[in-house]
């Protein structure tokens, strides 16, 4: 039995194919763009292609993320909060809290032993301290989003960035540049500022060590380091972290499919 999870985020759409035995068979990540329905389809097809599987072989599909209701071929919709919790506990057993930093949202989730959500909090309506904030910072420095984390790790004298407002971060960075501050020190300051914001959210749900870092920003090594320093405990992130929502969705798909297949329960 094969199931799928499709996570339609604000920036990227992720697709994951999962075998009933828990093996991940295929992954795909495509930009969401303007056509959300199309992005979901593309992520699914791409995942099928990487796994070498035909669509009829997939027996249950769960949509998650902001565009979960746009996954028209999906059988059920579950929020990405539940999915990240589920996925993190599956891939990183012993996870107590999940931090998901995505394009427009940061979420702190407290997770139970079965991957259930015990509590969660999200950032304010504005994009302060989210992926968008990093993107704005990268943009003004003329760097690629993928490289700023590594650049920040070179810093020896991190700056104190006080403003986590996406609108004002640009002028703040420009004035630091004008003062001759190094790019890496500025970037480290930016990462530290996001780590501080994230910690505030984690405290709301009651932070406990055993943190799984998920979402698009989890690929950023500078962010991992900034969080570890702030928290004083290790942060778990892996290649699969950006796919955590889709993985969780696939796990829910597996549960639903098994439930439907169980004798006497149909």
């Amino acid at each position: 039995m094969i199931v799928a999870g499709i996570d339609v985020g604000s920036t990227a759409t992720k697709g994951v194919l999962l075998h009933a035995d828990g093996r991940i068979l295929g992954r795909a990540l495509v930009p969401t763009g303007a056509n959300v329905v199309r992005a979901a389809e593309r992520a699914f097809q791409e995942a099928l292609r990487t796994a070498g599987i035909e669509d009829w072989e997939v027996c249950f599909i769960v949509g998650t993320g902001y565009g979960r209701y746009k996954v028209q071929f999906g059988h059920a919709q579950i929020t990405e909060i539940s999915c990240h919790a589920k996925g993190a506990q599956f891939l990183m057993p012993g996870t107590r809290t999940v931090l998901d930093i995505g394009g427009q949202d940061t979420k702190a989730i407290k997770v139970g032993e079965a991957g259930e959500v015990l509590d969660f909090c999200m950032n304010d309506k504005c994009a302060a301290g989210t992926g968008r904030f990093l993107e704005a910072a990268a943009g003004v420095l003329g760097l690629d989003l993928a490289e700023i984390g590594d650049v920040s790790l070179r810093s020896r004298d991190p700056l104190r960035v006080t403003n986590v407002c996406t609108v004002f971060v640009e002028s703040e960075i420009v004035s630091h540049l004008a003062k001759g501050r190094k790019v890496e020190d500025i970037l480290r300051g930016v990462h530290n500022a996001i780590a501080a914001r994230s910690l505030a959210l984690l405290r709301r749900v009651g932070y406990e060590p055993g943190l799984a870092f998920t979402g698009g920003v989890s690929r950023n090594r500078g962010m991992v380091r900034a969080l570890e320093e702030r928290l004083g405990s290790p942060v778990h992130a892996s290649e699969d972290s950006p796919f955590m929502g889709a993985i969780g969705a696939a796990l829910y798909a597996r549960e639903r499919a098994e439930h439907a297949a169980a004798p006497g329960k149909a």
Binding site: D124, C126, A196, A200, L201, R204
Partner: peptide
């Protein structure tokens, strides 16, 4: 001072 705790209790506005 660094804001480590209060941000979790007070909204940004």
């Amino acid at each position: 001072i660094e804001m480590d705790h209060a941000d979790s209790l007070v909204q940004s506005f």
